[in-house]
Write a protein that binds this DNA or RNA. Structure first.
Length: 673
RNA sequence: GGCGCGGUAGCUCAGUUGGUAAGAGCGUCGGAUUCAUAACCCGGAGGUCGGCGGUUCAAAUCCGCCCCGCGCUACCA
């Protein structure tokens, strides 16, 4: 076994608050694992922090008329607070805007630069002369070459979804000044991931116990072949490139963010008064580095960051990356833009943190996407936390207080069954420990609850309420066993329910303990306990209904705001340049190897034409044949998937991306104006 | 279309180096009980393990094809 473990959880992006999906995907599993390790007395360090760079943050700032620093300050604090309240026990929660991070990531870059790892390339990029800066992709707007949408961003057209490069745009304008940008030469540094392809394949192949979903994703990327990837950008929000003559350039956020794990560890060491101590966790071969992330982050943590670390040479490589799948909400994908989410800070206004920890933990998306529903939340809390765990603890505490004056009775002549149950404590401890060690967290939680189930079964089987009248000594022995189980549960459930178990340990007058001490002798005969309280209250139907109502109302309100804003005013002349004609769809067939395109033959009166339409996901060819539709007849032809398209069939698109053909009664060839 | 992952009881999910494992919790039905938050405990019902073929003495588990869901990727003139 390694001497120590460094656990990281994905750095949350500081442009918005966190929701249940984030918690279930990375932070809760990481915290369960870390808390278990700590209870075992192992040397484990848990690092996280806010990822505060990147274009989305600058855009969010512009939108609200505040600075990027204001944006990240806001969400860094909101998220940090939510984590703290949920008991996510980071040893250090840093942020990538910190000075230490800037220095660390710059040093990292410099080392790679000095080792000639990067490829430097000069390229044309759009530059805003008035603002005196290069424009990031998202800062350029213009006409989409694909669909003609005039407000397309330089990286992607929001209208048609096409991925773009800013230089593709027609009539580009700067978002900042509205000026027409010009081309200027700019230098950038690229990490040639292709050089690492073979090493990565061998390295990943040599990994032990990686999850199938993680290996699958890695192989998918490796099969497609890795390419050079820019590690710098022209932007002024981020970590400045530490080379002369590079004003206005920063490290690309995907490059600097994972280095944030290292920076945060340094800051932690500093805070500990032992500034060099971070090295133990990042440079000693006997450290196991574990990254907890969601599946969206696999490529960064299994391909790019390892390549960076390997290229650098001074750091340990990840031992395992137990990425989770996604959590759905009430059977639907989470969507922040559609309001389909439960925010952590909102949850915390209404419920206790441990309830959510348990419900998410027992249903983590470990091997596939899983579902969170409010009714399941209620059911888990009521029938498992309250009825199984809470009930066993409380009936034991009550019985001890009522009939034994709150004192643990002697274990006298234990029966075979008594011994069996007492022995089960150590067996569960070992079994559950193995499950944690192997990242089978869900199963670990399930088995933890089974120990409480065993307690209830034993209690009922022994019927101490009868023994109390017939054989007080025997009754005491039974309650002794139940008390030991309760004490064991107080530690077994500590990773999952930290604050509730702290309360319980206090009631049991059981000082902090550790995992290895979980045994059948945690409480000695004669030990005094306090009166028990109800740890878990049941949740009423109305409470749950209110949550569901709030969720649905918010989701229902959303579409209105999704209706795109009007484009800028067009002149009559602009409009008249477009020649719209009524046309009949004569034939329609799928385009080979395309999921979206249908190849249509249309009669526009003057002639018959081939037109491609991106509607294959919603319309079968035969559904369009015979329809009289509206066609843009003078659109410049364009080749796609090897087929030349001479025009465009007009479709209306609703906010859910459903398409509706614009049909007409007019004779074929009629001008539409 | 390519690549990856998944499709197991009404619900949420375990389970694959092929063979007494077809499982758990919830829900449901029946019984027992009262120490306990009408909780606990016992028992029953309930599944062609997405579909069709194949390999094998034996397949949820391996292979092929197909259908459905999710993710990445290429084309939405």
């Amino acid at each position: 076994m390694a001497k120590r473990t460094l656990v990281t959880a994905a750095l949350p992006y500081a442009n918005g608050p966190l929701h249940l999906g984030h918690l279930a995907g990375a932070y809760l599993p990481a915290d369960l694992y870390v808390r278990y390790k700590r209870l075992k007395g192992e040397d484990v360090l848990f690092i996280c922090g806010s990822d505060e760079h990147g274009v989305p943050i600058t855009l969010a700032a512009d939108k609200e008329g505040i600075t990027p620093a204001d944006v990240v300050e806001k969400f860094h604090n909101i998220n940090k607070k939510a984590f703290a309240e949920l008991g996510i026990s980071f040893d250090y929660f840093g942020r990538t805007s910190s000075e230490a991070h800037h220095k660390t990531s710059q040093d990292f870059f410099k080392t790679l630069h000095e080792k000639n790892v990067f490829v430097e390339k000069s390229q044309d990029q759009l530059y805003d002369p008035k603002a005196d800066m290069f424009l990031p992709d998202r800062y350029v707007r213009g006409t989409c070459p694909s669909c003609g949408y005039e407000e397309a961003y330089g990286d992607q057209c929001e209208k048609c979804g096409t991925s773009l490069s800013p230089t593709d745009l027609k009539n580009p304008t700067s978002v900042i000044t509205g000026e027409k940008p010009e081309f200027r030469q700019t230098n950038h540094w690229f990490l040639p991931l292709n050089d690492f392809q073979q090493w990565l394949e061998e390295w990943i192949d040599s990994r032990k116990n990686w999850k199938g979903n993680v290996l699958g994703q890695c192989k998918s990327w490796l099969n497609e072949g890795l390419n050079e990837r820019a590690v710098t950008r022209d932007l002024n929000w981020g970590v400045p490139v530490p080379l002369p003559g590079t004003e206005g350039k920063v490290l690309y956020v995907w490059f600097d963010a994972p280095i944030g794990y290292i920076s945060a560890t340094k800051e932690w060491a500093e805070q500990q008064g032992n500034p060099d101590r971070w090295k133990t966790y990042w440079q000693d071969e006997e450290t196991e580095l574990i990254h907890f992330i969601g599946k969206d982050n696999i490529v960064f943590h299994c391909i790019m960051f390892p390549a960076m670390l390997k290229a650098h040479g001074d750091f340990v490589l990840p031992e395992n990356v137990p990425a989770n799948e996604f959590l759905n909400l009430e059977g639907r994908k989470l969507s922040t833009s559609r309001g389909w989410a439960v925010w952590l800070h909102e949850y915390l206004e209404d419920f206790e943190p441990d309830l959510l920890r348990y419900v998410l933990a027992i249903n983590l998306p470990e091997t596939r996407d899983s579902d969170f529903s409010w009714s399941d939340f209620q059911s888990r809390v009521n029938s498992e936390l309250a009825d199984i765990l809470g009930n066993f603890i409380f009936r034991t505490q009550s019985f001890l207080n009522r009939y034994f004056d709150g004192t643990i009775p002697e274990l006298v002549n234990p029966t075979e069954r008594d011994t069996e149950v007492l022995n089960a404590i150590a067996e569960y401890r070992d079994e559950i420990g193995k499950l944690y060690d192997g990242f089978s967290l869900k199963e670990a939680v399930l088995q933890s609850m089974n120990l409480a189930r065993l307690g209830n079964k034993y209690f009922t089987e022994m019927e101490p309420w009868h023994l109390r009248k017939s054989d007080m000594e025997r009754c005491g022995t039974v309650l002794h066993v139940c008390a030991q189980l309760t004490a064991a549960l107080a530690t077994v459930f500590s990773p999952i329910l930290p604050s509730k178990m702290a309360v319980l340990r206090k009631e049991l007058n059981l000082p902090d303990t550790d995992w290895n001490n979980i045994s059948s002798t945690l409480l000695e005969a004669g030990h005094k306990i306090q009166k028990g309280t109800i740890l878990f209250n049941k949740i009423e139907d109305e409470t749950i209904e209110a949550q569901v109502r709030r969720l649905k109302e918010r989701a229902g309100e959303q579409p209105a705001s999704d209706i795109p804003e009007l484009k800028e005013t067009a002149t009559f002349e602009d409009f008249m340049k477009i020649d719209l004609r009524s046309a009949e769809v004569l034939t329609a067939e799928p385009v080979p190897k395309s999921d979206k395109l249908l190849k249509l033959e249309v009669d526009i009166g003057l002639e018959k034409r081939t037109v491609l339409a991106g509607v294959a996901q919603q319309y079968k060819p035969e559904e369009l044949i015979g329809k009289k539709v509206c066609v843009v007849a003078n659109l410049k032809p364009r080749k796609m998937m090897g087929v030349k398209s001479q025009g465009m069939v007009l479709m209306a698109e609703d906010t859910d991306e459903n398409l509706y053909p614009i049909t007409t009664e007019a004779p074929v060839g009629s001008i539409i104006k």
